[in-house]
Design a protein around this nucleic acid. Sequence first.
DNA 1: ATAAACAGCTATATAATATAGCAATTAGTC
DNA 2: GACTAATTGCTATATTATATAGCTGTTTAT
Lengths: 141, 141
Amino acid sequence: MKADPFKNNLGYNLRRASTAGMSRLAGQFAALDLRPTEASVLLVIEANPGIRQSEVGRMLDIRSANMAPLIGRLDDRGLIEREPVDGRSHGLSVNASGAETVAAIKTEIESHEALIRNALGDLPEEVFMAVMKRIWKQLEE
Amino acid sequence: MKADPFKNNLGYNLRRASTAGMSRLAGQFAALDLRPTEASVLLVIEANPGIRQSEVGRMLDIRSANMAPLIGRLDDRGLIEREPVDGRSHGLSVNASGAETVAAIKTEIESHEALIRNALGDLPEEVFMAVMKRIWKQLEE
DNA sequence: ATAAACAGCTATATAATATAGCAATTAGTC
DNA sequence: GACTAATTGCTATATTATATAGCTGTTTAT
């Protein structure tokens, strides 16, 4: 039997829980031909019609250099519309096809959330959320 | 003010907590010229002298195709030794230089763990760990 | 009017992963 | 003992999410 130096490591177990979730989610989204990042961008646009991509990037912590091809692909696939709001920015919104896709994403996310909620056991959801937000904020430089 | 569809999303907050931790850790390890994955491999080897790289890969869930260059780099840098144990496998162990590196890694990890422990607030460490392991195991396919 | 900040973008690099496939070795079964 | 199956280490290559540097044009602030 081998010794596992990460058995009681908080950070390692946090990471494994997160990556297990992400890879499961990626599998679910594959049926929609979407990557998790694209799905998250689509949800933010749907929740904020007319939002500029720089704002989406700030909300999700995605650099503008990475937002450009991401938005480009969603546009190419006909899921979003871009309307100029000034000389440099476009307001983004989901179109009918995007709205359908968003509905499918929400279904997947809800079942994903249910699995996590189930794994919480006795731990109240609000406590879990508060702890995650504290770790996030305190560990980011 | 923009609507944040992930404000109360368990999975998203889990992911952000995890990536904040990983990127902080990557920054700390950069001083040792090590990536987080390399550091984790080194810790497993140190805890299990003579372990084969296939076993390290199984413990950390790293494919053999990805283990090969990883171990190669640690060997090239003079941190580990490889001794043949049979016709196809080598037993791995850290050498003196690797042991020093491991000590430095452990120091970094301990301060990282302290930050996470601090963010737990009232939540007992064992509860956090148990929840992470349940999420991990239940969400991986 | 001019400087600074901002938006969107290209090109490129890195880290962690994945799949496919292969050669050599070892283990299991008849 | 022979044969098949599994294992080990590996190369080559692709994908995803991320990063930096730098550019153009637009808007804002002094």
